[in-house]
Each structure stands twice: as structure tokens, then as C-alpha cells.
Design a protein around this nucleic acid. Structure first.
Lengths: 234, 234
DNA sequence: GAGTGGTCTAGACCACAGC
DNA sequence: CTGTGGTCTAGACCACTCA
């Protein structure tokens, strides 16, 4: 192993992962690990702090460090960037803004986003198309108070999501995934059967408490899936 | 602010989040930050290492640290534990094992999980019910080579997923979320209309390369959604 | 009070990438 | 070669918490 703290971390992780140290098991104190590995306290402290940050162990003064109870299960899903996906697959991608308007936010959306009813939002409906096949329908609200430059942005080169991601950093996000049956309008737009199951991804983002954007992206259920690969350890 | 490294980190994060330091902007060198905050190099190093681990900055020797390009979008979704959810909502939860058998894995599942065709798996079909209303139908395979004690486990108190989570630590997971139309059998089990949109969550987990379990959980689309709240910064 | 983790220092040497 | 980050040391003081 290249670095000492890596070796220590791998050792401890292996013992946790193998079940040798089950949840609740007390991990050796820092001074014990110092002696075991013949290193300074800073080094073992760094290891244990990292493990705690990753949720593998919990630390308490006086009581020491113990193997953490397995956390609530969570799924981490990649949200595909259509342009990048298309480039990788060698297919042609384009998007079309179907509707663009500036509107006061309605009561339901105000509730969801924590805005005051009537706040001016840029509303965009976008169709994402790959090789002439509609892949997703996106309805998006952009808070003009937080992102005023969106007002004059033509969204010619990049679709709204990509443009926003590059421009506005975010601090909080909320995701909701649902399944719905396509109604007539949606079915026509996505060229699918009325009633076909669709995957709906809603994503709301804030920047330091200020609402940035809400996107509702609808994918044909038979054509798309959200995929994630995840390791609990960094 | 309580701690020095917290103050430094908050300062830098604020400048990145506000856009004052856009993606690509070079962050002061460690020795510059040492001088600015009047602290040791270890302290600023810890701050910058943390920021790098969180993906806010990228660091390169000689070149210094720069604000990272916004990462691929990803959604983090909580997978609800039915029992905990029910306890919180004050409703009654029970589950019913509809089918239990030990079977050799078929070709498709072997492909998905990286197992050899014919490996013995414990196969379970479970219905999750809250207040007498079916909430989800779960089909699960458990690798008896990795979890031999599952063979004799009656799954009386905890459903298979909860039991496994408490017992077997995992190192890798793969998630797939899809939308499907319910067929007749599924519709009858979940007491929904045939054709209704359902959310399907597939989750496969491995422990140090060894396959542990695959679960396919189907939720009625109108009754359930996956929700996640996420901040990029730890 | 005693023992733990949390933080911080003022050095040091090394690896690596760019000039 | 130079300057950067990566790692590590051998101390130190403090805060918290349990006995």
C-alpha cells in the first residue's frame, strides 16, 4: 500500500465489511491504533474522521468510536445529459423549445418551492429528441429573481437544464420520481400510446435558500430508466 | 464561528456558491491561505482536502486548486423502509411472503448479477401491506453462497430487505428505476387497474465482489413516489 | 476527575507536474 | 529545477461526557 493512512483505512473497512466488526462494535481508540500501526495520532485521527464522514462509524467523546448501524437505504441515480449521452452513443441530439413564457407562479408550485404566489417565473416546455425519436418532455420553471439573465437567454446551443447547471451553483436539491399513465397530449408529444407508463422525474433546486428552478421531466417508461451505481465508501 | 477550519471552509464555499469564484477559477495556494488566516498549513490543507473530497474543487500538484466544473446531475433518493414509515405515520404495517423457493438462477438473472447460471438462490415474493392496502410487491433473489443463513431464516419479524440490511454489509449497489404498466397478475396483487403505471425499483448489491441480493420492488404509480433531498456539500 | 475525540501547530520529506 | 499538493510527526490545548 502506498500510504499509511490508506492501509489503516483499508484494514478497518475490511473488518467492517466482512462482518468481523458488526454494527455497534467498538473500534480501537486512537491511541491504540497509534501503537498498533506505529504512527502519530493525526494519522489515525484522519482515518477515523474520514470513516465517520462516510458514515461507516460514529464517534463520541469518551465513549470512543463504534461501527455505525447501516443507514437508511438510498439510491443514487445518474440523470443523463442528453447531449453527452448522444455524443457517446453516436446519435444525433436536438431539443426544441415548444413554449416559452413569463408567468406568475401558481399556488401549487408556490407551495412546492416556497415562493410567494405570483412571483414571476420563466416557464419553458422542451422536447428532447434523439435521432428524430422524442426521448423526454421537460416542463421547467426558472426563478427570474435568482437567475435574471435567463430572461434574455435564447437557449440556442444548450437546453435549459444544461445552461443552468453551468451557470448557477446549487446548494440544495429535492428529487421526486413517480410513474404516470400518459394522457393524450403527452402521448402525442412523446409518440407513445395513450396510457403508456411514463417515468416522471421532478427536480427542484435552491441556492442558499433562494429557489432556482423546478424541472419535471417525463420519459417514456419503456424506453428509459434511471440507472445508478453506488458504493457507500468514498 | 467555532472552529478555524470551519470559517475558512465557509468563506471559500460562499465564494464558490455565490459565483464570485466561478468554475475554473484558481483558488489561493495553501501558503497564501496560511498567511491570510494566520494558521498552519495542515489547517488549510484539511479544508481544501475536504472541499476536494466533496467535489467542489479539483486539486493538481504544481497547478494548484481550481473550482470544479459542476458535476453530472444525480438524484439521491431515499428508499423507504415500510415498517419505519408506517410507525412514523401511525399506520399498521405487515408483510406476507407469497412464495418461497430455492432455485437455480436463470440465464437473464445470471447475466445481470454476474453469477454462473444454475447457482442456487433463495427466491422470495413478498407483498407489503399498510392498513390492509397493498403498497408494494417485491421479488427478491438472495445468494445462498454469500448469505447461507438466509436458508433457515423464517422472515417472521422483519421482511427480507430489512433482515438483509441489518445482517450483510454491502460494498456496491446498482439501482434501476423504470415505469411499467401493470399486467393482470400484478394488478390483482396490488389491487389496481390493469395497465396502471407502476414504479419499479431494481436494486442489486454486492459485498466485495460477491453477489448478495437482487430486489425488484413494484409500487403503484399513483400511490408511491421516491423522494430525495440532497445537498452537494457535506 | 479522567479519558476520549476535536482541533491546531510548526515543522519535515516526498511525489509529481510544469517550466 | 522549482513549486505545488500529499503525507506524516510529535507534540499541545480544549471540549465534552461519563463515571
Amino acid at each position: 500500500m502506498k500510504h499509511l493512512h490508506q492501509r489503516i483505512r483499508d484494514d478497518i473497512e475490511a473488518r467492517i465489511m466482512s462482518g468481523e466488526w458488526p454494527p455497534g462494535h467498538r473500534i480501537p481508540f486512537e491511541h491504540e491504533l497509534m501503537a498498533e500501526y506505529g504512527c502519530s495520532r493525526m494519522t489515525v485521527n484522519k482515518v477515523l474522521s474520514t470513516l465517520a464522514a462516510n458514515g461507516l462509524i460514529t464517534r463520541r467523546r469518551r465513549a470512543g468510536s463504534v461501527v455505525a448501524q447501516p443507514s437508511n437505504q438510498q439510491a443514487v441515480l445518474q440523470i443523463q445529459d442528453f447531449a453527452r449521452e448522444a455524443a457517446r452513443a453516436g446519435t444525433e441530439y436536438r431539443f426544441k423549445i415548444l413554449r416559452r413564457s413569463i408567468e406568475p407562479i401558481d399556488a401549487a408550485a408556490a407551495q412546492r418551492t416556497g415562493m410567494r404566489v405570483g412571483t414571476k417565473m420563466l416557464s419553458l416546455s422542451t422536447l428532447h429528441v434523439m435521432d428524430d425519436v422524442p426521448q423526454a418532455f421537460e416542463q421547467r420553471l426558472i426563478n427570474l429573481a435568482t437567475v435574471p439573465e435567463a430572461d434574455t437567454e435564447p437557449f440556442k446551443d444548450d437546453p435549459p437544464g444544461t445552461w443552468l447547471l453551468r451557470r448557477v451553483p446549487w446548494t440544495d436539491a429535492e428529487h421526486i420520481v413517480r410513474a404516470v399513465n400518459a394522457d393524450g397530449t403527452l402521448a402525442r408529444r412523446l409518440q407513445i400510446q395513450t396510457g403508456a407508463a411514463c417515468l416522471v422525474l421532478e427536480r427542484r433546486t435552491w441556492q442558499a435558500g433562494a429557489f432556482v428552478t423546478e424541472a419535471r421531466i417525463t420519459y417514456p417508461g419503456d424506453r428509459h430508466q434511471l440507472v445508478g451505481r453506488f458504493s457507500p465508501v468514498a
